[in-house]
Design a binder for these strands. Sequence first.
DNA 1: CGTTGACAATTGGTCTGACAACCAGGTAAC
DNA 2: GTTACCTGGTTGTCAGACCAATTGTCAACG
Lengths: 235, 235
Amino acid sequence: MREMRNVQLYEAVAREIGEAVVSGRFTAGSALPPERALCEQLGVGRSTLREALVSLAALGIVRMHQGRGVFVQQVPSALLQARLARLDSQPSMLDVAEARMAIEVAATEYAAMRRDHRDIEQMEEALRAMDADIRAGGVGGEEDTQFHILLLAACKNDVLRQLGEELGALTHRIRHRALLVEGRARPANEEHWEVLDGIKRQEPERAGSAMRRHLQYGIELAAREFGETPTTAGS
Amino acid sequence: MREMRNVQLYEAVAREIGEAVVSGRFTAGSALPPERALCEQLGVGRSTLREALVSLAALGIVRMHQGRGVFVQQVPSALLQARLARLDSQPSMLDVAEARMAIEVAATEYAAMRRDHRDIEQMEEALRAMDADIRAGGVGGEEDTQFHILLLAACKNDVLRQLGEELGALTHRIRHRALLVEGRARPANEEHWEVLDGIKRQEPERAGSAMRRHLQYGIELAAREFGETPTTAGS
DNA sequence: CGTTGACAATTGGTCTGACAACCAGGTAAC
DNA sequence: GTTACCTGGTTGTCAGACCAATTGTCAACG
């Protein structure tokens, strides 16, 4: 039995053009034929062709300039194939937790080198607030998040900050659960203080490994909790 | 002088919808309003809306089903953000290079623990091809990219893989320039071999620090080149 | 001779309306 | 109870027209 995939026309056109680019029929940097000519050549309407071109542009394979033409971008063929095959799986919580550790440990190291007095003050304030909340019987979830956000700002790298915040938001449920585990909130904040101490003394190595130990718990929790969930890729 | 960016309407619509998805206004898994309703809501024609939707679909943010509707994919917003960044202006090259190092070093360490025989074979093949290209007078740019993509796949973490590919694509120009610098292509590949050796022996520490040394050059180049350039996003 | 400015041609960008393909759900016939 | 069909809604595709940006031409001007 054949798969008989119900592939849409504009997808087919996009693949057609994409393969023509890969095969070198359209050299990088040069312009494609005008849309109206390509329509006739491919036997499709202009709407369909444009949807194909727009989707290729979204993948960075071509670039469209009004009044000038559609130009083939210089993109390595290896990366091109990786992009075309990007309609696949859905990452697991464990993957997200691991990526978050990579980002935050790096951010911690840079923060230890680039932090200013204001960063230190704000982070200390957040940690003191978390201490207070814990003593009052809370888990300090808000303050925990605040500390990590302040740390990401202190590294003075917008990419790390943005990625860290996004990944942090995704692991929020896990982190909250971790803090709820008996006796986890207090040691968690002690680890925070260790990290901050390393940043304060401008010792990237120490601060980074302290953060690594701190985040390791989240990874282990994610592994236990979401270990080998089939990750129902939906529909 | 103002930038006076000449942004296209369908790009603006795509960002609008994309941000609505990120902000949670459209919950993952559910369907967007029908195209005609969205047209009226946004005040644009259906062609424009469809071009926006198709570009979002190409990025894996939504999925279109004929006769049923347009559905929001259940994709972690971190990847979403990285993908949307493509539609926006580009961040600092130095920031990107640093973030890339964080991601790739982590990926290298995990790859050293999780790689299988096939990963090793493919990476060795890529490096041999790069050696050959260099001996032939080339710089091995394609093979360099290929190696890093294979490594990201070997770490068995989809989040790290996708983020690494995104950041790698952004630093493509810098890397190519680095390889063109006199005598840089050959040492670069020797560092590749060191990384692969560490992965092969399942020594995360060694492989990771080898990768760190390897990528350090790119960071320094980015710092020299784009040190405090206003990043005019040159068209 | 060089520069400027208007103008036309070319190209991508957007809108409109129509119809086809497809899907879900209800309804009538068996 | 099951099947077949109808119907309304949705995405997919097409055609044509017009808008907007870019480029090249060429005459008028200094």
